[in-house]
Design a binder for these strands. Structure first.
Length: 138
DNA sequence: GCCAACGTTGGC
DNA sequence: GCCAACGTTGGC
């Protein structure tokens, strides 16, 4: 099983929207590297850290899961999408600041300066550390 | 809203 | 194939 981090601006689509909808199509990704992860590497059951970007503060807000593997967008088949479903909303948002200073997360892509990749791989260890932080009441 | 850090496009 | 111009992302 693989682990991922996917970004969304909460003004566009938040963890609350995902909880309400149950599942959603993850379309609109227009970056080749991100597309290739979705098209080639995601498998049903993979776990996803749901990240709120451009937020106040930005950070991880919960967990989702891949329920449909990469398939082409209808109007622009160059691009791919996956389907995800809601798994869990964290007890608290884990801010980017905290990710940067938490031991064991030094190599997370999202903590690197200038990392604009909206779909990123994370390790199981990183996933577990973040999930533990999110479940802890702050 | 600003702007640095990217990724993409297109002229040459 | 280079690289300047342009567009976008996303932290702040």
């Amino acid at each position: 099983m693989k682990y991922w981090l996917m970004k969304s601006e909460p003004s566009a689509y938040s963890i609350d929207d995902l909880e309400r909808d149950g599942s959603t199509h993850w379309n609109g990704v227009r970056n080749y590297q991100a597309r290739n992860f979705m098209r080639d590497e995601m498998r049903v059951g993979d776990q996803v850290l749901f990240y709120a970007s451009n937020a106040d503060p930005s950070g991880v807000t919960g967990i989702a899961e891949i329920v449909r593997e990469g398939y082409p967008e209808e109007k622009e088949p160059t691009w791919s999408m996956v389907d995800i479903r809601f798994v869990e909303k964290f007890a608290r948002l884990v801010p980017l600041d905290e990710l940067k200073t938490t031991k064991g997360l030094e190599d997370m892509v999202v903590t690197r300066k200038g990392s604009r990749l909206s779909v990123q791989p994370v390790t199981k260890k990183e996933f577990d550390v973040v999930a533990k932080l999110g479940r802890k009441r702050g």
